[in-house]
Nucleic acid binder design. Structure first.
Lengths: 350, 350
DNA sequence: GTACAAATGATTGACGTACATCAGAAGCTT
DNA sequence: AAGCTTCTGATGTACGTCAATCATTTGTAC
């Protein structure tokens, strides 16, 4: 049989109450006694039964996920993954509420965070750009001892406890190497397309991409970044103009998603399938584009893992548990047609 | 507050005992009453607290992992991952014992499986080739209602409940596409190196690789598979001879791991870094080879995830729980230098 | 040696579910 | 309506841990 707290008490020659005090780091135990108890624990190989512990605590974990209300494919996918993870987490007495804020309105975001703080939620997963207002809001949450994890987008200069996502610069470097190797040794020109360069991720990706291109692929010329601001018209215009004025354009690096509009333009220009296209984030659109050969590779992160990881980390933080760093590490995934995960993995239908 | 069985009883107008009978599918309840209880359950949104349930059952899960005793880098890595996962699973009343059998001795394997069956373990994760003896042994286990999951290597024609691993053929296809694209459009020759073609994985990978090469990269000629049988001398001999007699050799596809010996030979032949090398499985060796540019890409699976997934699935099978297919799906990962996960992820040091 | 604080013991009632037992009610057959 | 089976209710114990209470011992300072 597996040892219990009673066995520890007997082995250490102390009472159950003392063992409990040691286990839960409560005050009022001599250092010497603590040692004795810990010795007994390691001698018997005791491991605390988390199920029973949580039951006894009868603790419910009310977690909050806070996201911008942007209507992108990626956010859609992420949202589905979070809902799915939340449904499963319900079995483990964890309920998840999702809050969204107007993408540009940091004050609205701060309000939401303040309310969550006042409501004493057990933890918050936050996807937001790092602005002074956000920094202050996070600081306020930390003052209330509420764990905060950064989701997708890191918040390095805040007091956030953890970052769940991938290194954008390394992701950009990865995209760069693939682009360089796919293009081969002939001189070539590559253009970078972005919806907006205001997002930290876009900047970081671009930086990583450029680094690699300069150091490893001198034969490839990386043109200026074209911003489309999410408008299909703008995109059509800039791409058409670019193609007209550029000899030797052989690749496009898509900093964000938004592949659909580009495919339409390229089709009209009779360039679809003749350029090397590399983008980010696996969504139903990019998946389809990979399947039919319109996209050559996608750099992505596993959103299912992302959602589960965020909840797990929050929970561990909430009851000062242990975090398995190896498990929570998100990988920069390279997806091509041949290793596309089966459908349903990123578009949870249930 | 979250509803409990008591709330269900009140809502359905029945007693606690009846709710319990319905929940645990015990006999002696009228169909009509069952419906009433189920209605109450869905109305209140009740979800059974698995922690409390398992505690009450006071159930311990004794799981077994059965592996060949081959001394490969991959098995080493896998073993570390399993130990790590097992240590964490201990918190959830799950203990894991690891058994190893002589790689060629299927009877020894059958013995182990029979003993585990007799010992009534809660589940078995099995990595073994599919032979008639193994098929029979698995069938015997199923007769005892012991869940069996296939690990790494699928057992499609047995009664195994689940497969935790990746599709080797798709992995081979992925390697093929990368090889083809990295080599570019010039005619080229590629050789395939294997320790042995007896393993199902090797055959499947080779098959996927060839498929892709033939259909997508006609300019690349894939030479015959060279078997090294794990001997560094044989490897040196066949590779040296090959290089001498082959014009235009530009790539090597390593079906297994065993990159170290190859690197030595290539260095002597002054070919290190001048060929495109693609291999399988991320281990300390292949990691290092990627870092220094000796390997161009590695196709792998996340062994940490593999180990955790196997234990989760076994547990879910053991108490007829739900399996989250999306979570248990292992991905075919492409690793290059730029997206190498941080160390420690595949070499758990603890 | 008394006074007081600190450390420890002893005991108890949760937490949500499983499972067993026994008594009683409802439904059926004849 | 009696006798029977099939359902249902009521009740209690257990699982391993948490958390609180109160009693008691030990240690320390004067």
């Amino acid at each position: 049989m597996r040892p219990t707290v009673n066995d520890i008490a007997r082995e250490a020659g102390v009472s159950l109450a003392t063992v409990d005090r040691v286990l839960n780091a409560r005050p009022g135990v001599r250092a010497q006694t603590i040692t004795a108890v810990n010795d007994a624990i390691s001698k018997l190989g005791y491991v605390r039964d988390m199920a029973a512990a949580n039951l006894a605590r009868s603790r419910n974990y009310r977690m909050a996920v806070v996201l911008p209300d942007t209507e992108s494919q990626f956010l859609h996918t992420l949202l589905a993954a979070i809902s799915h993870a939340a449904a499963l987490a319900a079995t483990a007495r964890t309920e998840v509420e999702i809050h969204r804020f107007p993408a540009e309105d940091m004050h609205a975001l701060a309000d939401i965070l303040a309310r969550l703080g006042a409501a004493q939620v057990a933890g918050i997963a936050l996807m937001a750009p790092e602005t002074p207002i956000v920094r202050d809001a996070v600081r306020a949450l930390k003052a209330l001892h509420i764990p905060v994890v950064a989701l997708v987008s890191d918040l390095p200069n805040t007091e956030a406890d953890h970052f769940v996502g991938i290194d954008s610069r390394a992701a950009g470097r990865t995209a760069g190497v693939l682009m360089g190797r796919f293009l081969g040794e002939k001189p070539a020109k590559v253009v970078v397309l972005a919806q907006s360069m205001l997002l930290r991720e876009s900047i970081e990706r671009r930086r990583g991409f450029d680094e690699v291109m300069q150091s490893d692929f001198p034969q490839v010329e990386v043109l200026q970044t074209l911003e489309t601001h999410g408008s299909a018209d703008t995109l059509r215009q800039v791409v058409t103009e670019l193609v007209r004025n550029t000899d030797g354009l052989r690749g496009i690096y898509l900093l964000g998603s938004g592949h659909r509009a580009l495919a339409a333009v390229l089709r009209d220009l009779r360039l679809l399938g003749r350029l090397t296209l590399i983008g980010h984030e696996l969504t139903p659109h990019t998946r389809r584009a990979l399947e039919v050969g319109q996209l050559d590779a996608v750099i992505t992160q596993n959103v299912g893992h992302l959602a589960r990881s965020a909840l797990r980390v929050l929970r561990a933080k909430a009851d000062r548990g242990v975090i398995d760093e190896a498990q929570e590490q998100l990988r920069i995934e390279i997806v091509i047609r041949e290793n596309l995960p089966p459908d349903g993995d990123d578009a949870h239908s249930f």
